[in-house]
């Protein structure tokens, strides 16, 4: 047998070790959005304020908006909330998707902490959440003028994420 054959295991192992090294700095729990570059799913859900007022896909503003998935049982949402309020003050349009929550709790939360949302969708059973592929709150979706999902952020939306991830995409969308 040729001598190089004995080198093969070493070569394979080195390749494996390099991949494993990469893997160490890799967060295996982050999921990409399957819904990326797809139109926001059709829905018809009540608003948070009253169950008789129905919000549908048509009610979403035809501009660049954020859709923020939140709930009062989610502690990171509490952490995220002040920044959302600040963004709203700056004129960013944010739609709230209240996910698998209790109406009274959610209303009290908004009253106490301020309401950054232009529209509040009440998704008690999580049906829209399922259509979006939500797997935990908070999650934030960026929609373009045509209602197509351009970006999804899982976890707390921090000023850093806003500046580094979302603003560049928004710039492109505005210019494009």
């Amino acid at each position: 047998m040729k001598q190089w054959v004995y080198l093969l295991p070493l070569v394979l192992f080195i390749a494996l070790a390099i991949v494993l090294w990469q893997g160490l700095s890799n967060d295996s729990r982050l999921l990409p959005a399957a819904m990326l570059n797809q139109p926001f799913p059709e829905f018809a859900l009540p608003s948070l304020a009253s169950s008789s007022q129905i919000i549908t896909t048509k009610d979403l503003p035809k501009q660049i908006i954020l859709v923020n998935v939140w709930a009062t049982w989610c502690s990171s949402c509490l952490q995220e909330h002040p920044f959302l309020v600040e963004l709203a003050k700056q004129g960013v349009v944010i739609i709230g998707l209240n996910y698998k929550d209790k109406r009274a709790d959610a209303l009290a939360w908004l009253k106490q902490l301020g309401n950054p949302y232009q529209l509040e969708i009440f998704d008690a059973k999580g049906s829209l959440g399922l259509d979006l592929g939500v797997y935990g709150a908070p999650e934030t979706y960026l929609l373009d003028q045509h209602g197509v999902i351009q970006y999804r952020h899982v976890g707390v939306l921090t000023p850093d994420v806003w500046r580094q991830r979302l603003i560049p995409i928004i710039e492109v969308l505005k210019n494009g």
């Binding site: 004995y6 080198l7 295991p9 192992f13 080195i14 070790a17």
Partner: peptide
């Protein structure tokens, strides 16, 4: 450990 022993293997196993 593995890299070292496989290097040794590559040199000597022949």
């Amino acid at each position: 450990v593995v890299g070292g022993s496989l290097t040794l293997f590559a040199i000597r196993a022949g």
